[in-house]
Amino acid sequence: MSSAVEEKRKHQKAQKKADRDAALAKKAELNMTSLMDIFVNVLIYLLMNYSTSPVDVPQSKEHTLPQSSTKLEVKHTTTIAVTKKIIMVNRKKVCDVVKNTVDPSLKKDKQASSYLITPLFKELKEDVQKQKKIAKYNPSAAFKGEVTIVADQDMSFRLLSEVMYTAGQAEFSKFKFAVVKKGG
């Protein structure tokens, strides 16, 4: 008698389990269409903001660009980046900056009053020579003497003049200051 009850109970249990499994199987089938819709929207948004700017600016605490209402677009030129700590030419570090000044030992004649930053000048000169060499064989890539300065907003005018003077000595004559565009 008891075994018959046991049998029945077992059977009921198995039945219940089967039902549950079936329900689970139905639930597990995700509706992919809505997820697809989300992704397609994200994709469109990202494509619209796709960056074509030739200067990529890593923004950090040491390197915050000032804001401006300019409408001019960035062009592909040599870049000098001045952060609170270092100066880079084409993303290559050339010298350190401490409290808005370059160490006098890196300047011409080792004088603090000098405007010429020697390592920066050397690097820029190399770049100019490279560009001129290219221009020799490819007239469409003529050397225009353009340089983009990507500088931190707290840089002093003194350091800016030093960088511009050094670039001027390396035959760069047209300066472009990179800024963050206001209002989109």
């Binding site: 001019l72 511009m164 001027g168």
Partner: peptide, 23 residues
């Protein structure tokens, strides 16, 4: 490769002291 901030430029001519070898 998305730009979340738009970068622009301001054209500036060299200061007088930075005339350089080629004007």
């Amino acid at each position: 490769s998305t730009e979340f901030i738009k970068i622009g430029v301001i054209n500036v001519a060299a200061p007088k002291i930075g005339g350089g070898a080629s004007s």
